[in-house]
Simulated scan of single mutants.
Amino acid sequence: MFIQEWGFDLSKESSLNSATVKYRDFLLATASGKIEGVKGPGKLATPFEKTKVAAYTLGAMTPCMRLYAFLGKELQALLHPSESTHPYKKWIDNYSSEGFQGSALQTEDLLDKLSVSLTGEELDIIEKLYYQAMKLEIEFFCAQLLDQYTIVPLTKGHDPAADRLVIFSDFDLTCTVVDSSAILAEIAIITAPKFDQNQPENQIIRMSSADLRNTWGVLSKQYTEEYEQCIENILPSEKVEEFDYEGLCKALEQLSDFEKRANSRVIESGVLKGLNLDDIKRAGERLILQDGCASFFQNIVKNESLIADVHILSYCWCGDLIRSAFSSGMFLP
């Protein structure tokens, strides 16, 4: 129904990918009674034996119906009502339709009816078949090749000549493997004078390394406790049925206020006072980035046809550390 619209030539031979073959073979084996750990049914002489194999087969088929119905609804919710040019619109419309949703429910209802007479052991087999089928379905979707690299999820076609993307990314523990604020604190502690060490008169007076470590420990503990409390206060106590824009704005304001208070405590404590800029840059160059982070931003920066602004956010507020981390990856100037 959709193949020709997507530009596939049905007259040409094509090979099935391995994920498709695995699910097909799994369904055929189940329908013929060849189920792992279950003795073959032999000749299906009684209605009960026929019902049991039918239930097993339906248990292997139902996840396909349920997953497609779920994906159809989820993707339909992302499409703008006026969207008409999306390449998969008909696919989404079909699987989000009331007709298909009803078919999925009917399939599940039939499976329930066929399972009424089964034993507990036989119901466990259906559960395992359902799980295996869903796993194979997910593998099927993951195995599909992309026609083009996707930089960010888009709900409509992206025109590089006309559209400008604004990409925001968190830095700490999203781009990096470790928390960057802890690195700044460690630099301060390592480079701080010892307790009995005299400091030059022309330098900023700094806390001793022992005092710094104790102060940072107190600040870290306080941050963690207040952060958990802040998140607990923000999260709604009941399930949210629809997107609440105003509620989201208020939640982000609360989170922003919390971060400002936490940052102010760090500044007032003086734990980072007197840090050497070169030490910060060297630490940034040695920061380990998450797998795929460098290539993600490289694809954006090096794509001359893509108009995009990239913004990196971090609660450590140290721009030099962040710039050094990305410069070391050779994808930012």
Rank of each mutant, 00 (worst) to 15 (best):
A133R: 04
I312V: 13
G247M: 03
K194R: 15
N202W: 07
V21K: 13
I183P: 00
H80C: 10
S327R: 08
E232R: 14
E74L: 07
Y88A: 12
K52T: 12
K250H: 11
N202D: 15
P153E: 01
I151C: 06
P160S: 11
T62V: 06
G59Y: 04
V310I: 09
D163H: 12
I125C: 08
I234A: 03
E242T: 06
Q101V: 04
E13I: 05
A294Q: 11
F2N: 05
K50S: 06
L145K: 14
L332Y: 12
I280Q: 00
S103K: 11
D25Q: 13
F26P: 02
W216K: 00
S180Y: 03
K260D: 10
N17D: 15
Q199T: 05
A162W: 07
P200D: 10
S328F: 06
A161Y: 01
S220V: 10
V240I: 15
G37V: 04
D244I: 01
L173E: 02
T20S: 15
V116M: 09
S181E: 15
F296E: 01
Y149P: 02
K260M: 14
F297N: 02
G99I: 12
S220C: 05
D278T: 14
S82M: 10
Q254R: 09
L44E: 01
E139S: 04
L28E: 13
S103W: 12
T51I: 13
I167G: 00
E5P: 01
A251D: 06
L75R: 13
I190G: 01
G33Q: 03
E246P: 00
R24E: 05
L252R: 11
S32F: 12
K281S: 08
E232S: 11
A31Y: 03
F243W: 10
D112H: 14
N233Y: 05
K239C: 09
G284V: 12
K90H: 09
K221R: 09
V218I: 15
W317T: 14
Y23R: 13
V53G: 00
A308C: 13
L71N: 12
F331P: 04
A19D: 00
C175N: 11
Y131R: 14
S314M: 03
D159M: 05
G99H: 12
G319W: 05
A104D: 08
Y56I: 01
R282D: 15
T224R: 09
E259A: 07
N198W: 05
I138F: 09
A19H: 01
Q197K: 05
L114M: 06
V21N: 05
D9P: 02
A31H: 09
L28W: 12
A143W: 05
